[in-house]
Design a protein around this nucleic acid. Structure first.
Lengths: 137, 137
DNA sequence: TATAAAATTGCAAATAACTTGCAAATGCAA
DNA sequence: TTGCATTTGCAAGTTATTTGCAATTTTATA
């Protein structure tokens, strides 16, 4: 069963920070560094535990870029169910993009028909360069 | 510069094992367990170092499945340049499949035209169920 | 508003999967 | 066979994350 959640100072701070930077992604260490200075001082363990809870509740997406050691978290609540589409991650800036368009159906269809593979959003991640970084490279 | 490679008992054993199970993937711990009993006894560090070298030389593909902690290695030499296509991994059996067909072009084209995203094979991994596991689930 | 049960926090210690340093052993070209 | 470069084994180190536990907060309810 899902555990009840209490609203706390730290959970609020983390949510606010990620929500107001919804087009970016952060590691636990990033969040820790950001919130350490402000208000009392947050604990890294608390950061991990809250990120986990926010991910479970669907507000955040947690993912690991190929070749990176640390998980990244990005605010994705407005995208609804992120299990139903796949994501693209920029290998330069790390940002996450949602493949929310009709092409999802084509992709799913092709994989199933020609490769017998049933695609799932969970765990699928395409890597490459986003428009922004492509220009600046 | 690329370093010269000596041929050794362990490198041969690891290559042989992976090559003769080319449709499966293994973690360093798997290989270690497999080769520990046979012949003298291999060291885990040696396994890691050889897997790394074999990956660099293009014989193996090294990847991490979403939600897994350990890297997996699979013999992919016959597939040529695995940077030029993306891969699908079965979340059930862990096996790797290569998207080596004309659809690669469609996918690349769509992402670039409609999302400004330049897809790269390196680091891109689709997750789902392979034909075999789909039947058995 | 007081209270008690449940959730959250901080800190230190534990994990897990690798990685590294270094001296000894091995491979190989000449 | 010699000498230098690569590989190996072992112990110790890393890094990101998790866990145990006692103390502190929240929140629903009396």
């Amino acid at each position: 069963m899902v555990q009840k959640q209490y609203r706390t100072k730290w959970k609020d701070s983390i949510t606010e920070y990620l929500e107001s930077h919804a087009d970016q992604c952060f590691s636990a260490a990033d969040i820790y560094a950001e919130l350490k200075g402000k208000e009392a001082s947050i604990n890294l363990t608390t950061v991990y535990r809250n990120l986990e809870k926010l991910t479970e509740s669907g507000k955040l997406m947690k993912y690991k870029a190929a070749g990176e050691d640390a998980y990244r978290y990005q605010y994705v609540e407005p995208y609804g169910n992120c299990q139903e589409h796949i994501h693209m991650q920029c290998r330069e800036c790390g940002k996450l993009f949602h493949l929310e368009c009709s092409f999802m159906k084509e992709l799913t269809g092709h994989l199933l028909e020609h490769h017998g593979f049933m695609l799932e959003g969970q765990g699928s991640m395409l890597s490459g360069l986003c428009g922004m970084c492509k220009k600046n490279c």
